[in-house]
Design a binder for these strands. Structure first.
Lengths: 357, 357
DNA sequence: TTGAAAGCGCTAACAC
DNA sequence: GTGTTAGCGCTTTCAA
């Protein structure tokens, strides 16, 4: 068993070369899977590497090859000084970190300021100090124009995760927000709901617009006119959802029988407001969310929502970035599948909703 | 404005040395705040560094100085293939990452297998490949004996975050679980509750035992005998909490008027079970949690719980680790303060609880 | 207080 | 297919 660490008395390419009776260069080629080594030699060297427990020194490799073997995963601190949805963050991280490890890279998590100007400065310092080989931008950074421009200027490869638009610089990974929202709305329609409200997302967030559009498209598809009073502003927050529901549920006979909230957090707010008003969910009111985040199963009743393959998006984005770093030309945009998760917060409409009982 | 990145045509110590009319060595000393440089020289060099936008090359520094300037923050993947409480994870990360940056370090987030043997292997590979200057162990890794032993063997400095016991190898950062749980139980007692149940934590988790002990201590302090049937097993999960509450609430006249759940997630489960049984919280039943995690405010009613200064614990642990790396002798254990957060899930007892109405 | 020399471990560029 | 040479940018060591 080899417990020798890097830097102490660890084996080097020279040690391996000597043992294998080849030159250090050949060892290097084997380690990097570079062409130009006879398969016999390659096998021999690999065996010696195994035996000596040789692990290449990252610092040396990085210094000579001018690659840091690091990528940065950049999040934005949200305005209230906490990051948004921690479950989204950790799941994305797992996808990214895992895929990095598979490829000899490491991921550095960075949290940039909510202030765009400050974030740009932080990103530059990051590029200088850490010198990542590439950057992954989580939303809403993925839609921050000036930052993208700066990365282009610095010639740092980057991939955008769930940006506002698939156009723009750099490849991206997206999910089909619009059809997903449409499917959810159609699901509510198919259960007999006709007065369906929509609690919108944060105006600055990329996902907000397509989710509203999907909602509208579903109504149009079913030949139902949209009701302006049922489309209320929101900001992806619990409090925003609670306020929106308070408004909607005080509409009396015009109140909705179902609410489509554009994310789980605001759906949780709607749920809390319904509880506070002693309105039974889902018998009197159906509520649907979007994201299938951590909290969805911890609410009462558990939330019917749309599941995004967040971890898989992280993996896909990382693969795209590594391809970019290798000088390849990855697809401009990768679309990931979504799935409607039926739980207990939505049920068939019962006549006039809460006014039926 | 300097946009030159590392590795491209960035300024080096030689450039700075030439401009300043000194040797590269002097520049190095200034950069590292090493002694033995006249203050005039130091000022001059600093000025040139500023002017050229010089940023030391991490790889070169790391190669020569045999320090990677990285620390690893290790989490354990929980058994159900997701990490526990994402909010805890992200908050701890922010504390650690922030403090690292302040000190010229970077933090690498690592997620180890739930299987201890596999985790040990991953940790060794990590130590070899990344060669972090130190490791921070999040719970429950901080209580994993074999891993700690391995780190000692590898001579990698480490700090334990919320370990089972303050004894054992390496410094640690802890909160006073016992008095915190005691205070919460006393809070319930002071509101007139006498039949208070305790939903225990995961047996393998360090925090479980002291929290139970705190609960018991409070009862003892008030001269109340503990009731075995009111102390139910749990595992820090939503489902575990729900099962525990189902048991407790089917006890008829012996059912508790208040439940102290050993974390927020199981408290959420208790809340869901109460909702499902149409038991009003807090009027018929009080529920208290522990951790003040992300979900606490998204439940209905919002959870009365104990707040841990998680971010600050991350910062403190990082400072301890950096001290250890510098060869200093940090305190063996740092205790962080906690705080009872009153929200709406607990209220004064009303006669016989749910049987009063 | 400062500097010169050497080399950390690896790989680009080129020669054979 | 393989080896030689040189040097990435920094800091350790030692000398002045």
């Amino acid at each position: 068993m080899n417990l020798r660490r890097q830097g102490r008395n660890a084996a080097t390419v020279h040690d391996v070369a000597r043992e294998a009776g080849v030159s250090p260069m050949t060892v290097s080629r084997v380690v990097n899977n570079a062409p130009g080594v006879a398969s016999v030699t390659r096998a021999l060297v690999k065996q010696v590497i195994e035996r000596l427990g040789f692990v290449p020194n990252r610092a040396a490799r990085s210094l000579r090859a001018r690659r840091s073997l690091w990528i940065a995963l950049a999040f934005q601190r949200s305005l209230d000084e906490t990051r948004d949805d921690p479950a989204y963050v950790t799941e994305l991280q797992e996808g990214v970190i895992g895929r990095c490890l598979e490829n000899g890279y490491h991921a550095a998590v960075e949290v940039l300021s909510a202030d765009q100007g400050e974030a740009a400065i932080q990103l530059r310092e990051l590029a200088q100090q850490l010198a990542p080989d590439g950057v992954l931008l989580a939303p809403p950074l993925s839609a921050a124009g000036p930052l993208l421009a700066q990365l282009e200027e610095l010639r740092v490869p980057f991939v955008r995760i769930s940006p506002a638009s698939e156009d723009g610089p750099g490849p991206c990974v997206v999910i089909d927000d619009l059809p997903a929202a449409q499917q959810m709305t159609e699901y509510l329609l198919s259960m007999g709901h006709r007065r369906i409200a929509c609690v919108q997302g944060h105006p600055a967030h990329a996902a907000s617009a397509p989710r509203l559009q999907g909602y509208l498209a579903a109504l149009t598809g079913w030949g139902i006119a949209s009701t302006p009073s049922l489309i209320v502003p929101g900001d992806f927050s619990f409090d925003g959802g609670k306020r929106a529901a308070a408004h909607l549920l005080s509409l009396g006979a015009d109140a909705p029988t179902a609410i489509f909230a554009c994310n789980d957090e605001s759906a949780a707010g709607c749920l809390a407001e319904a509880h506070a008003r002693r309105i039974q969910v889902p018998t009197e009111l159906s509520i649907a969310g979007f994201d299938d985040t951590y909290v969805a199963t911890m609410l009462y009743p558990p939330l019917t929502t749309i599941r995004q393959p967040i971890r898989e998006m992280g993996q896909a984005a990382t693969s795209q970035l590594l391809a970019l770093i290798e000088g390849l030309q990855p697809p401009q945009s990768i679309r990931m599948p979504y799935r409607l998760v039926e739980r207990q917060s939505a049920a068939p409409a019962t006549g006039q909703g809460r006014h039926a009982s």
